[in-house]
Design a protein around this nucleic acid. Sequence first.
DNA 1: AGGATCTGGTAGACAGTGTCTACCAGGCCC
DNA 2: GGGCCTGGTAGACACTGTCTACCAGATCCT
Lengths: 218, 218
Amino acid sequence: MTDESSLRERLIDVGVDLVLTEGSASVGLREIARRAGVSHGAPRRYFPTHHALLSAIGRRGFEDLAAMFEAAVAGATTPRGQLEALARAYVRYALERRGMFELMWRHDLLDGAAQASDQPRLRESTLPLFGHFTGLVARCRSERDAARRADGPNEAGPPPAVTAAALWSNLHGMAQLWAWGSLQLALGAPPLDSAPGDDRRDRLITAVLDAHLGPVTS
Amino acid sequence: MTDESSLRERLIDVGVDLVLTEGSASVGLREIARRAGVSHGAPRRYFPTHHALLSAIGRRGFEDLAAMFEAAVAGATTPRGQLEALARAYVRYALERRGMFELMWRHDLLDGAAQASDQPRLRESTLPLFGHFTGLVARCRSERDAARRADGPNEAGPPPAVTAAALWSNLHGMAQLWAWGSLQLALGAPPLDSAPGDDRRDRLITAVLDAHLGPVTS
DNA sequence: AGGATCTGGTAGACAGTGTCTACCAGGCCC
DNA sequence: GGGCCTGGTAGACACTGTCTACCAGATCCT
């Protein structure tokens, strides 16, 4: 099938698959090689160490996440709507691809200190993403300010970058805690008739957006 | 020294120490046994598997965190001040004991599905903590509402549990992203003359609290 | 007192892991 | 055709977690 593609890419594919199905803990170097149909020493030609392969898998995760964001944002028109879609996508990613989400933030595995400097460090994968995010927050707030300027004083609030950082933290924490199962516990038992798209999740998401961007002025 | 204490406790102590100094990745069963001065089979008498020992270490982390919270809350008087102290403690914990913080949320390692049911699952360690949290948020908001009832309509807002969940998520995400290094990147280079108690951190924390609890009405 | 039993630990084996090294088939160039 | 580089194989090494057999010493029973 994908025989013509380079082994390097195939190893990452197999790795992603393994992380998604078996969890992020058991992604052995040898197991990946086995499933890719090569000997256990073969990956070494492309990834000098196990961590390097895991980093590549994690990087793939950030790319997927970015693509998911782009698709989500494209589906909405207003900045607020786009942020909401983005938030939903963030949490959904953590839930649907939990193994990948876990792996992506394991800085003990990825992005080791001894990494060659030709590859950007994995941490910086989040940087353009955050820039996009800050832009949306800024637009969202300038719109709100414009609407408010009519009937009240224009309270300053923190700069957009700070708000964006706070909001991003919130989404990230929500995604992780939800994936971990703590928020379900905290918010009580599920309604039991709720669809996979849990509506407690949606209420929490809108509460978070309202908190950081102000309630929607419909 | 601590020779009289049971080996079980000593293994956990050594494990915590190892996690704090060497990181959460390399906490081998044999290494712990070695540093505790016993043979590599000894831990098995108390922890049937490696995961069980790691879970015990993680549980110790939650106990430490709870103690830190208690101390932080005791230092403040108003609910808002207590929440602020708690927030600071959360982030500080993640930074100062990064290895432990990482370990505590690794649900792939801890709290395995095959765990004996006599021990409460690790996830539920966060439950009383969250209850305390919700109480503080409720008090904080009822105070604010009382102050506001004079000069405006009492807007409803989400129930305290939802606000508490949102705020908790925010603190958690902030702690993790900060520990990971992403927020430092996102907020730009540090002022370079900032003390270890980075003031960007404090500004972000107050921004987060303001967002969820409303700005402080001094 | 003396034998049985239980506690808490030692020591060795086993499969599996990541890393390292030697080797080697095949294409390519001069 | 000989030398060299590419991309991979195969085996060794140290190390890991788990399992099993064994065993010193305390405790208990009669």
